[in-house]
């Protein structure tokens, strides 16, 4: 069953344009940093959401480092928005090192006005 399931998942992700997202999480006290690499879209954003959900309760600060993020879709923005809303009353959420394509999308959707961009 394990083998079978894995194989299936692989072919599924291959068929959607090699969509991939690498998430590196690091922790410094109550500050959590997520280094994102690849594409944050409908297919990959649930993974980031579950990783954020795991830590959000005891986090004082969430940092998203987007230096290596090539693309963000509205589903990805939603995860960032959810994180910003979750941190609203109890800490801060920072987006760091955004690339031009991601900046364009932030500008377009107006999220540049909402997020704390460093």
């Amino acid at each position: 069953m394990g083998l079978f399931g894995k194989k299936k998942n692989n072919t599924a992700s291959n068929s959607v344009n090699n969509a991939f997202l690498k998430i590196k999480t690091s922790k410094d006290g109550a500050e959590y940093t997520f280094m994102l690499e690849g594409r944050l879209d409908t297919n990959t954003s649930p993974e980031l959401k579950s990783k954020v959900d795991e830590v959000v309760d005891d986090a004082k600060k969430l940092v998203f480092d987007l230096e290596k993020l090539d693309y963000i879709s509205s589903a990805g923005l939603r995860v960032l928005l959810g994180s910003a809303q979750a941190m609203e009353d109890k800490g801060e959420m920072v987006v760091r090192n955004i690339t031009q394509p991601v900046r364009d999308i932030f500008d377009l959707t107006g999220f540049n006005l909402l997020f704390n961009i460093e």
Partner: peptide
């Protein structure tokens, strides 16, 4: 001119 997407922040 662009404003924030609807639903993100009530003061937009």
């Amino acid at each position: 001119v662009h404003g924030l997407a609807i639903g993100a922040m009530d003061m937009a």
